[in-house]
Simulated assay, not measured.
Amino acid sequence: MRISATVAAVSGALVLSAFAVPAAQAAGSDAGSYRSDVAKIREAAHTSGRATLSGSTVATPADATPYALNVTFANVKVNNGKPIVAGTSGHLSVPVTYTLTHGADVDITASDFLSGPYIYKGTFADPSNMLFGEDAGTCTVTSATAASCKATLDIYPGEGDLSNVDAGAWKAGAEAIALNGQDPTSASFDITKVGLADQGNFASPNVTRLAKLTVNAAPEPVKKGKTITVTGKLTRANWDGANYTGYSTQPVKLQFRKKNSSTYTTVKTIKTTSTGALKTTLKATVDGYFRYSFAGTSTTAPINATGDYVDVK
């Protein structure tokens, strides 16, 4: 869901900048979907003169914008606070909860009232990437002016949603739109009758690259006291190439557990080569399992290799 910019609320004023609907997102949207409606509102909000919406040209005054909707957000929690780990394909459904507070003049139960969270890379005023959900959040009214809400972010790593520069720290935001009977696909659509609230700078867990780690201990079987060579490789998701590439110069622990034990103990720590390769040696003592263990970084998820059993004679 990569976009170039957003409609941001800074110091209480709407700052409108260029918006592009991501190709992957647009392909899965229809005219009545949450993401499609939000995209059209944002597009109409920033465009001066005339805005093209769903093939229809809508006359829009150069200074026409949505009005500031009396809605605020709090307690935004993304993925239960755990890092979002993405590989190179598939669909990630990331849960989000948030609290919505609104003025008495806002009807959040209206069929055309929409709200939902998002996460963004960079600053709120000028994000380099944003990720949304395909559907609006669902809210349970808790008082006359508040609701408890939940939603899902939908991420497709293999369809251009993520690039390698996106790994690491993100922030979270939330938005609400009151269409008030306005149809974004209609030639009579009036953006000035639509309410928009957009709030950011909430905490978000890091978005990290999925890691893979292998291990092979040889020879097997081996005589007691002889040398065992343990090789392996640490790779991580390459969001720019839809493959996995070696993670260089990273500290990785070689761990061992005895045959009838459930606990691994660190034997030594070594670093990966420029290609992510691992290789070390040690003396054979007792039967057991060897594995490599990577603690992870701010951009890459932790991973333990599946233990490789060595029979010591």
Rank of each mutant, 00 (worst) to 15 (best):
residue 1 M to L: 06
residue 5 A to P: 01
residue 34 Y to H: 13
residue 140 T to L: 09
residue 159 E to T: 06
residue 280 T to I: 01
residue 92 L to Q: 02
residue 287 D to T: 07
residue 178 A to P: 02
residue 284 A to L: 09
residue 159 E to H: 07
residue 56 S to Y: 13
residue 99 T to V: 13
residue 217 A to Y: 05
residue 175 E to N: 02
residue 191 I to V: 07
residue 1 M to Q: 08
residue 239 W to L: 01
residue 290 F to E: 07
residue 107 D to Q: 09
residue 110 A to G: 14
residue 194 V to D: 02
residue 137 G to D: 12
residue 46 H to N: 13
residue 212 K to C: 00
residue 261 S to H: 05
residue 185 T to A: 08
residue 260 N to L: 10
residue 161 D to R: 02
residue 163 S to W: 05
residue 220 E to D: 14
residue 212 K to G: 08
residue 45 A to L: 05
residue 165 V to E: 15
residue 39 A to Q: 13
residue 138 T to C: 04
residue 264 Y to D: 01
residue 293 S to A: 15
residue 313 K to Q: 13
residue 67 Y to H: 09
residue 293 S to M: 04
residue 235 T to Q: 13
residue 100 L to H: 10
residue 191 I to M: 04
residue 85 V to K: 09
residue 152 T to F: 05
residue 57 T to Q: 14
residue 7 V to G: 14
residue 312 V to N: 12
residue 226 K to N: 15
residue 188 S to N: 10
residue 198 D to P: 00
residue 4 S to R: 08
residue 240 D to V: 00
residue 52 T to E: 14
residue 164 N to R: 02
residue 25 Q to Y: 15
residue 8 A to S: 15
residue 40 K to S: 12
residue 94 V to P: 12
residue 44 A to W: 07
residue 165 V to Q: 13
residue 128 S to A: 10
residue 96 V to M: 08
residue 216 N to C: 03
residue 258 K to W: 06
residue 141 V to W: 05
residue 22 P to N: 13
residue 181 G to N: 05
residue 130 M to L: 12
residue 113 F to I: 04
residue 185 T to Y: 05
residue 54 S to K: 13
residue 199 Q to F: 02
residue 221 P to M: 02
residue 197 A to E: 08
residue 4 S to G: 14
residue 21 V to C: 15
residue 44 A to L: 04
residue 23 A to C: 09
residue 76 V to F: 09
residue 29 S to R: 06
residue 73 F to P: 03
residue 159 E to K: 11
residue 7 V to S: 15
residue 311 D to P: 04
residue 33 S to W: 05
residue 252 V to N: 11
residue 170 W to V: 00
residue 263 T to L: 04
residue 88 T to A: 12
residue 142 T to C: 03
